[in-house]
């Protein structure tokens, strides 16, 4: 394709210096640990009531997935090729329909059979 010029990375900003990129990876690693450790602690030592715990686990998981996409897989909301983000979002939509539908239908059937 084109000659090696001032390349931009997918954020639309010039490729970071090695230090900046290293810092980005370390941030990602730090954040993912931050989202992991407390949840494990909360489950191990029952810090929260059960329902609250489930919500916390879910929220941490969603945040964690976002961190992984942002810092390691380099999928961002702005400035990059649109089809990648579209692809990920479309997959999320399909997953929500298929997974959510499956759980809904099977749960519904279970209920009408008087449970297992």
């Amino acid at each position: 394709m084109s000659a090696p010029v001032e390349t931009e990375d997918e954020t639309g900003t010039p490729d970071g210096t090695p230090q900046q990129e290293l810092r980005s990876y370390l941030w990602g690693y730090g954040l993912s640990l931050l989202l992991t450790l407390p949840v494990f602690g909360a489950v191990a030592w029952d810090w929260l009531p059960r329902a609250a715990l489930w919500w916390a686990i879910g929220a941490a998981a969603v945040a964690q997935v976002a961190v992984q996409f942002r810092f390691f897989l380099h999928i961002r909301l702005k400035g990059q090729a649109k089809e990648d983000l579209q692809l990920v979002l479309f997959t999320a939509l399909i997953l929500a329909m298929m997974g959510g539908g499956t759980i809904w239908i099977l749960h519904n059937l279970d209920g009408r059979m008087g449970g297992p």
Binding site: W104, I105, N108, L109, R112, M113
Partner: peptide, 8 residues
């Protein structure tokens, strides 16, 4: 006809 509810 598998048995799920009418609303579903």
């Amino acid at each position: 006809t598998m048995g799920q509810s009418a609303s579903l």
